[in-house]
């Protein structure tokens, strides 16, 4: 398998071959997860710690389930309630955990780059479960797997990413991944929710949603991240819904077989109409959740293989291998 990274910190350092390898491995786990006996031995004996410095129910549950199905010992640490409040720095927390010999650290943090920083300080594999507005690589991988299964390919598709791009790590990771796989990406949203100079990322930017959705294969909606906004990005939720909320009228501009995606949790009636979200002919939102577990199993499996190989090599180099 081509994926040789020690950590999964983002999509940016991955090659198209890395991405394809991870998606192929994920397919096997989709099948496993649909079978009666869902257990694998891939992480047996390994310890996985989920450190969430930011609230999350869905992602944390997905990582926890993925680890348990692979046979790891899984521990959840809700960091916003713990020693961070007592003034301990991220580095100290990392060193403390490192002393417990974890093998996989799954980290979510409200600040961009925090997971990279932590990865420099520990000697286990680190998975980024979302850092600030920077990256959320497993979300992009699960979106890619969902698209690949629904469309039969992951290249030469017209994909629209709509809404709050500025505050979204999901959007950044997706732009990176879908671009690497040679798709045409359109970003749709009000200019106040677009990152600066985003057009230099090889995307087309639309302020008019109908225009932007014209003929696309995939409509990817983003959650309006009210908690990251310090005021004044949009006039009101109802005007936002009117201009950028996905309803039947706007979706009619996309291809007839276009799929609708959302990373969840949804604000129904703000960025997406409830009936579209629930339309089993268009919406793949539930499938995204299913793919999430498989992709996370694949990512942890791949990282654990690389971790074991590195440890084997270092023992061999020290001559302590028996």
């Amino acid at each position: 398998m081509s994926f040789t990274q020690s950590h999964l910190l983002g999509i940016e350092p991955l090659s198209p071959a890395d991405i394809t390898a991870l998606l192929d491995l994920s397919e096997a786990y989709v099948d496993l997860n649909r079978s009666e006996e869902k257990h694998s031995q891939a992480l047996t004996g390994l310890t996985q710690i989920n450190m969430f410095f930011e609230n999350s129910t869905r992602t944390q549950a997905s990582f926890e389930l993925a680890g348990k199905r692979l046979g790891a010992d899984v521990m959840n640490m809700s960091m916003q309630a713990s020693s961070i409040k007592k003034g301990e720095t991220l580095i100290d927390t990392a060193l403390t955990l490192n002393a417990m010999h974890p093998d996989l650290l799954v980290v979510r943090h409200p600040h961009s780059g925090a997971v990279d920083l932590l990865a420099q300080k520990v000697n286990c594999a680190v998975l980024n479960a979302g850092d600030g507005r920077h990256e959320h690589p497993t979300q992009a991988l699960l979106d890619a797997l969902t698209i690949r299964r629904a469309k039969g390919r992951l290249h030469r598709l017209n994909i629209a990413i709509c809404g709050d791009i500025a505050h979204s790590r999901v959007a950044r990771s997706n732009i990176m991944l879908l671009g690497k796989m040679e798709n045409r990406i359109r970003l749709i949203g009000p200019p106040t929710l677009m990152p600066s100079q985003i057009s230099e990322f090889g995307v087309e930017v639309y302020e008019d949603m109908k225009e932007g959705l014209e003929g696309v294969d995939v409509v990817m909606m983003l959650r309006l991240q009210k908690e990251r906004m310090d005021g004044g990005f949009i006039p009101s939720e109802r005007e936002y819904y009117h201009r950028y909320g996905l309803d039947a009228e706007k979706l009619a501009y996309a291809k007839e077989d276009a799929i609708v995606m959302h990373p969840g949790p949804m604000n129904r009636g703000v960025e997406i109409d409830g009936t579209i979200a629930d339309d089993i002919n268009r919406s793949v939102i539930q499938e995204q959740v299913e793919m999430g577990v498989a992709v996370r199993m694949a990512a942890m499996d791949a990282l654990a293989r690389n971790l074991r190989a590195r440890r084997f090599n270092s023992r061999a180099a020290m001559g302590t291998l028996v």
């Binding site: 940016e12 961009s112 780059g113 850092d131 600030g132 507005r133 920077h134 990256e135 790590r169 950044r172 990152p195 600066s196 100079q197 985003i198 230099e200 990322f201």
Partner: peptide, 15 residues
Amino acid sequence: TSGKFASLRGLPAVS
């Protein structure tokens, strides 16, 4: 400073 680099890194930026 706002711009392509800031957008890439997802950091809060100023014009």
